[in-house]
Design a protein around this nucleic acid. Structure first.
Length: 268
DNA sequence: GCCATTTGACCCCG
DNA sequence: CGGGGTCAAATGGC
């Protein structure tokens, strides 16, 4: 049992690493396509990298599903509500539940382990569109944690989420934990210049004024570098594996997390 | 009026 | 049992 579970843990970590790579490659791919002209070879390369990650992940995943006795597969169905009715169908009147709160409040399957990884960054935007769905005070943390899900969770079934906390030590930094991969269509996710509906509060951290495409790439590179750094210098503990994360992450902030719209600077 | 955010309630897991 | 993650009604902004 121990050996099997140990192998399983290793397998999961390997898959996590691959998923991270795949996700980052996807981000880079999107940025390249946004800023696009003359980056054809780079895009092609990134596409190949992404494909390699995908193949590796699916290969390992197929292995993973063979021995189904020791562990549960955890199909990342955080939304598989109480096995009765998938509330996906009636999205309209599901919100009009009056009366006592006896319905499905908090009735969900907590995902045990998904593709999760953490980055630290001063900037909160990325290539995806997020929608905040919760905030929580965390024990031993000065700042609350904010919860985001993909905007297209219900329209496209994208199950990617992320959590954001402001670091206590460095108030400018945020710890951003990504959970799950985006399955949504990136083109629709990052509209070029939508309506800027989200609240872009510029309270404190707003230094990057109206910059442009370069800063976008820098963001991603920055994140990637931080990510790499955590990998090399520390152990793998910066990555949320199975809940073995070190403390010292605190966060706060809710409203000014929304500055990712910056990415939608008109490409051209 | 629609959509995103806020906020308290609720459930799962260790 | 308590902390953490999610849901959904209420609220506010556009």
């Amino acid at each position: 049992m121990d050996i099997a579970s140990n192998n399983k843990a290793i397998m999961l970590e390997v898959i996590d690493q691959l998923v991270q790579g795949h996700e980052l490659a996807t981000k880079l791919q999107q940025l390249l396509s946004q800023h696009g002209s003359g980056l054809g070879p780079a895009e092609d390369l990134v596409a190949k990298i992404s494909g390699s990650f995908s193949d590796s992940i699916s290969a390992l995943d197929s292995i993973e599903h063979i021995p189904s006795s020791l562990f549960t597969a955890v199909e990342g169905s955080q939304n598989a509500s109480c096995n009765n009715d998938g509330k996906l169908e009636d999205s309209v009147d599901s919100r009009k539940r009056l009366g006592p709160v006896k319905n499905k409040r908090g009735c969900y399957k907590r995902k045990k382990r998904a593709d999760t990884w953490t980055v630290e960054s001063t900037l909160l935007e990325d290539a995806f569109s997020w929608r905040k769905y919760g905030k929580k005070e965390i024990l031993n943390a000065k700042f609350p944690r904010s919860y985001f899900r993909c905007t297209h969770k219900y329209t496209q079934g994208c199950k990617a989420t992320k959590q954001v906390q402001k670091l206590e030590l460095e108030s400018k930094m945020f710890s951003i934990t990504y959970i799950g991969n985006h399955t949504c269509n990136s083109d629709e996710v990052t509209p070029k210049c939508p309506s800027l509906t989200t609240s872009v509060n510029e309270e404190e951290n707003n230094h990057h004024n109206g910059s442009s495409t370069e800063s976008d790439l820098q963001l991603v590179w920055q994140e990637m570098l931080v990510f790499e750094e955590e990998h090399n210098h520390h152990h793998h503990e910066a990555i949320y594996g199975c809940g073995e994360n070190s403390a010292s992450i605190n966060g706060l902030d809710t409203t000014d997390l929304w500055s990712w719209q910056q990415l939608s600077v008109q490409p051209q």
